[in-house]
Design a protein around this nucleic acid. Structure first.
Lengths: 151, 151
DNA sequence: CCTTGACTTCAAGTCTACTTGAAGTTGTAT
DNA sequence: ATACAACTTCAAGTAGACTTGAAGTCAAGG
């Protein structure tokens, strides 16, 4: 049973809090077995899953989206190498998009620095509408709901 | 008094909800005058301020940080061209940093796609610790609290 | 004048991703 | 055997940026 991790060990190795792990489990993102005394024991592969979750979060995905992605895997949960390849390819695309958006925004900023934009006539930054209008809490623009054209 | 905007007009032209404008005002980010009947009337310059606020949010700043930036302006609120230049230069820097982070993450993803990372031995993505460990809700990594080195 | 849409305030609700606290149980080293 | 850290559950709290709803007032067209 050296192959099993306690929640504390997993937390340490994955770089997350134990409370976060319990939360992931509650949401169904990871799973565990229990000891006779009802304590969680995680398979090593769960460490991999948690790493994937954190990476996906950095890409900008919500836990709901990550859950969906993990659910879509053939052997649900605990992604294999080819699963990971599939997922990361998709995420890379989204990441590319977000990077593109930020670069576009940066270009607008550059144009605006000292351009007299404050006239509000032609400045892209100061004319909303085609830029991401709805971005509530957090970075939601990456999910593909809508993509600001910045044309 | 054609120079004044109602809250509905401002909302439409700025691309935000009226509730958001009241919220900004409550937080002290924008200000208004009142009619005899106690309705808000905004100066045209407020449209500019709202645009600046939205742009800054897209850069990744919180309202608290934006408020601080606006407060730091000599003629507080309603930024002039040179104020805007100052602000946008600073924001551009942060934007650059965030873009750099995302690009680094993308490179990691690329390395990981089909590299056998799942061994968990040497993969940057799968070895947390030096990557941004704390990013709660939203894009907090841009604020300079901590910068992941991704070394 | 009257209707109707736009406005007012204020309190409370929403969403995401957790964290914190209380009260109690388990595992392990000595 | 005993201490003590690490674990358990469950409820409630947190942060940020708003939104929603209720109950009432204002403004402009016909």
């Amino acid at each position: 049973m050296d192959d099993y991790l306690t929640i504390g060990d997993l937390a340490k190795r994955a770089g997350v809090a134990t409370s976060a792990l319990r939360y992931y489990e509650e949401r169904g993102l990871i799973s565990s077995e229990r000891t006779d005394g009802n304590q969680r024991r995680y398979q090593r592969s769960v460490l991999r899953t948690v790493s994937v979750i954190r990476a996906a979060q950095e890409v900008g995905l919500t836990l709901a989206e990550i859950e969906q992605a993990l659910d879509s895997l053939p052997n649900s949960r605990a992604p294999t190498k080819s699963d990971w390849t599939k997922l990361s390819r998709g995420w890379r695309t989204q990441l590319d998009e977000r990077i593109g958006e930020l670069i576009a925004l940066r270009d607008e900023l550059d144009d605006c620095i000292g351009c007299g934009c404050l006239s509000l006539r032609s400045c892209a930054l100061f004319n909303p509408g085609d830029r991401a209008a709805t971005f509530g809490t957090g970075a939601r623009y990456i999910t593909g709901d809508e993509r600001p054209s910045l044309s």
